[in-house]
Each structure stands twice: as C-alpha cells, then as structure tokens.
Amino acid sequence: MLSYVTRRIVGAIPTMLIIITLAFFMMRIAPGGPFDSNHRLPPEIQHNIEAAYNLDKPVYQQFLMYLDRLMHGDFGPSYKNKDFTVTQLIEDGLPVSARLGLSAITLAILLGTALGVIAALNHNRPSDYGVMAIAMFGITIPTFVTAPLLTLIFGVYGITLFGFDLSLPVGGWNGGAMKNMILPVTVLALPQIAIISRLVRGSMIEVLNSNYVRTARAKGLPSHIVVVRHALRAAILPLVSYLGPAIAGLVTGSLIVEQIFGLPGIGRYFVQGALDRDYTLVMGVVIFYAMIILLLNLAADILYRILDPRVRFD
C-alpha cells in the first residue's frame, strides 16, 4: 500500500507541473502587464515596480522563481489586492469554502445513497420513478438557476408552513450560522444528490439480483440486514470512485454559490480576481484547487482499494 501511495504521489508531480506551467505561461501571453494603466507611469517608476515583482527578468527565470516560491507554499503577492499575498487570501477563504464543501458532500452522500436505495428496492414502481424524476431535475437544472429560484422562494417571498416561518437568509456568512448555511449547502449538494442517487440505484439493482444476496435471503435473514449489511456494502463501491469527480463538481459549483450568496470563500476571490485580471490570484487559486482535487482523487482511490479487497495495491 505504501508503495502504491508513493507511486501515485510521484505520478501526480508531472500533472501538477503541467498545470503550473500552463497557468504560468497562459498568464504571460496575456496582452498588457499587470501594472499597465491608462496614464503611463514615468519609465523609472515603471521599471522599479517591475523590478520589485521580478518582471524585468527573463521569462524562464521568472518561471523558476515562481516554482521555487510555490515549493515554499508562497503563491506570490496579489496584483490587485494591494498588501495581500495570494496565500493570505486563500487562507482567508479556505475555512468558508471547506465547510461549505464538506457539508454539501456529506449531505449529498447521505441523501443520495438513501434515495438510491429506496429507488432500487422499489425498482420499476412509482417511488422509483419519482426518485429518478427528481434526479433528472437535479442533473439538468444548473446551480445558477436553482440558487436564485430557491432564493426567490425562501428569501424574497418567504414561506410559512403550518405556522412556521420557513424563510431563510439568502446571503452573508454570519460566522457560519446554521441558518445561513442551509440554502448554499442545499444548492451545492443538489446536483450531487441527483448523480449519487442514480449511481447507487444502478449498482444496488445489480447487487440485489446477485447470487449471494439471494443466498442471504434464502437463509432467512431479515430484509433490512440483507440490504444494509450485504447489499449496500457492495453497492456503495461505485460511489467511492465517483467521489473524485464529485469534489471537482463541488469546487466548480462553489464558484457560483459563493457568488450568489455572497459568501467570503475562495471561489469568490477567484471570480473577482478573474474579473479584475488579478493574474497571480487566479493562477494561485487554480494551482491550489488542482492540488486539492488531485489529493482528494488519490484519497478516494485509496479508500476504494481498502473497501474492495479484490483490487490490489499493485
């Protein structure tokens, strides 16, 4: 196992290098430097600023310096948020984004698995079709439609059900209060709930038809034990291998969700950075996210190997 992990990490290095190189050189071919402005600075000052950011050195040297700084966890200064380094901005947004993402993935796994199992147990019956119809909605309707619509329903109009006020705050972080989390987490989790429920339904149907489940039933085990202890364990495997793409999906979704609900996460800095052409910030966030995605992919693969003894570490 150790050798497998080492090999995977070593294998991830070229990928990471490609990402960094791509990001770096794409930024370099951008027309206009970060300190070009409408009124031209006197040449000496322009030169001094560029020297301060090492922009006067040859490109390959800049690249090596950037790599060197990355090794030390330094993404460089933000060009537009003066006095902030990109690392500071990422550290600032990380707790918000991480909490949002973890809550969403937890919700998606729990709810998606439950829905998938229900659908599989009622294969080709109304509750199966119901779950699959909901899943179709979840997959087709994008985050940036559900977010404003839910905001409209729960925030702007407000809903009172049986005397309970169901209206929710539609913006702001408020120190991560539960109430503020509900809508963003729901919106972020919806597509994943849909995909996971379809995934679990499919594999569950297959497992339920397998011989060992029939044996378990035949020897008289109660149905819930068959489902939970025997079938679900095997049916959950495709879900584990889906976790990698799910994380990537959540990261993309968080760009939208943080924007709409005004949450101070990394995604919001990224979008703002992209609109402001804050090159170092955009590059830093891309590299950071790529690293997270690669790491979580690796974690999912290891988990898969631990859960499925048929797959060996070789």
Binding site: A12, P14, T15, I18, I19, L22, A23, M26, M27, I29, A30, P31, A248, V251, T252, F270, A274, R277, Y279, V282, M283, V285, V286, Y289, A290, I293, L294, N297
Partner: peptide, 20 residues
C-alpha cells in the same frame, strides 16, 4: 489521463481572462 485530472473549467476561465 493527465488532461483529465486538470480542473479544466478553470483553464477556460484563465483563457477568457487572458484573451478578454
């Protein structure tokens, strides 16, 4: 395989930033 593991939408965003 290598390209698959890139967060590609981010690169489209970079492209859009760079080329206006």
């Amino acid at each position: 395989d290598v390209l698959y593991s890139l967060p590609f939408i981010f690169f489209v965003i970079i492209l859009m930033v760079v080329f206006n």
